[in-house]
Design a protein around this nucleic acid. Structure first.
Length: 400
DNA sequence: TCTGGGGTCCTGTAACCT
DNA sequence: TCTGAGGTTACAGGACCC
């Protein structure tokens, strides 16, 4: 495998990944915390870690770990609640920087993206030089570090950036991809989580090289047809997926875990209303309508169910999401079951502009939608929650 | 030790249509 | 007319990612 300094033969894909993104942005805002363990995450009794500085990770803290446990491992850590608006702003700036290098930028999340730099070479040098240039620009402009993987395919570039962390750059030329991949543990592969890893280990497959040398049929039987053939291809470094900018959003939603389990249907319905309004506001701001509404209910024992219903006419109206969500919830026929979480999702999104005519034909109640649009304007002017349904205006309830 | 919130994709099943 | 095969779509659940 190649490291910095070599030529980037056949390398056209960069994977750029911010290091401990949320925590790094917090350290930039609170310079006195530099070099100390910082955890971003929920502080409540059910909060989990969203991001942690490398100083905290040294104690075994990692993302998705309950915050309470993280604090037992690392009692000196500073826990911060997180500021999504700020992280989004930093993310937008970083993505804009990427797009100034190449239009072929595919964001994967707020803190990482693929870049196809095959067309940018002449101007800025080869893929390695572009990677180093980006790392320097991100640090200069945002005061945070990132890691870069440089390779001939998305999947190898992604693995390379992971191995380069923190604050590094790793090049894996196509000719060396197999040497790089085969010693890695199966869990390093994209798409192999705990369940799949367990299934593979049962077959005695521990490394990517093991996967490469087992018959595809065996893999397919163990983990399913699609995943089996996919893993086999990846194990030989074959990943033909292109870098695709502007993938359309497929769904949007909101969910909430209660501080303590709830068995009062009135409380559940009120939460469904809040989540429906929040989801609808997101649909409107993205210019989308939803064809399908789904709810998620997680019980006290963590068992989780979903129910969905496709609407006759797509909508971005909170009241309509709520009516559907309530109908789905009522149809469960629960008898004061203890519920831990409820969620509302809008799926099968369509563009509001192209669906406008259909909306007219559907002759929905325009008054409700107009009221919600007015609430959107008020929220932009006075802050979120400036206008909300009367049923959400109970005393002592300041959450939105 | 007790598991957040935002998503995507895949699979199995059932219903429906031809 | 009846039946079966095969395709499509809707729905539910689950694995996975950050």
């Amino acid at each position: 495998m190649a490291t910095r300094g070599g030529r980037a033969e056949g390398c056209t894909v960069l994977h750029v990944d911010m290091d401990a993104f949320f925590a790094s942005v917090e350290v930039r805002r609170h310079p006195e915390l530099a070099g100390t363990p910082v955890i971003v995450g929920g502080a409540g009794n059910r909060g989990v870690v969203t991001s942690a500085t490398y100083e905290a990770r040294r104690y075994g803290v990692h993302a998705a770990m309950p915050t309470a446990r993280a604090l037992r491992l690392c009692p000196t850590a500073t826990v911060l609640p997180g500021d999504m608006a700020l992280y989004s702003e930093v993310s937008r700036s970083v993505m804009a920087l990427f797009r100034s290098i190449t239009p072929l930028v595919e964001p994967l999340s707020m803190d990482e993206a693929f870049l196809d730099v095959s067309g940018a070479g002449r101007r800025l040098g080869d893929a390695i030089e572009i990677g180093e240039y980006l790392r320097a620009r991100v640090f200069d402009e945002q005061g945070i570090t990132c890691s870069v993987g440089v390779a001939g395919s998305k999947f190898v570039a992604k693995l390379a950036s992971t191995r380069a962390k923190p604050d590094g750059l790793l090049v894996v030329r196509p000719a060396k991809a197999i040497d790089f991949l085969h010693p890695l543990p199966v869990g390093a592969l994209w798409g192999v989580g705990p369940k799949t890893e367990e299934a593979l280990l049962r077959l005695g497959l521990r490394t990517v090289g093991d996967i490469a040398h087992v018959p595809v049929r065996t893999l397919e039987r163990a983990v399913g047809a699609a995943a089996g053939s996919h893993l086999h291809e990846l194990s030989w470094g074959r990943d033909p997926r292109r870098v695709v900018p502007d993938e359309p959003e497929k769904s949007t939603g909101a969910e909430e875990t209660f501080d303590t389990d709830v068995d009062d249907p009135a409380v559940i319905r009120r939460e469904l209303l809040r989540l429906s309004e929040r989801t609808a506001a997101r649909l409107r701001s993205a210019g989308h309508l939803a064809r399908t509404v789904s709810i998620k209910v997680r019980f006290a024992d963590f068992a989780t169910i979903t129910r969905s219903r496709t609407l006759g006419v797509p909508t971005d109206v909170g009241q309509e999401l709520y009516d559907t969500a309530c109908g789905l919830f009522d149809a469960l026929g629960l008898d004061r079951a203890r519920i831990r979480l409820v969620g509302v999702r809008a799926e099968r999104l369509v563009d509001a502009g192209s669906a406008a005519q259909q909306l007219e034909l559907g002759a929905r109640e325009h008054g409700r939608r107009d009221a919600e649009l007015a609430a959107d304007r008020a929220a932009r002017r006075f802050g979120p929650g400036a206008v909300r349904p009367a049923t959400l205006l109970r005393q002592g309830d300041a959450r939105w």
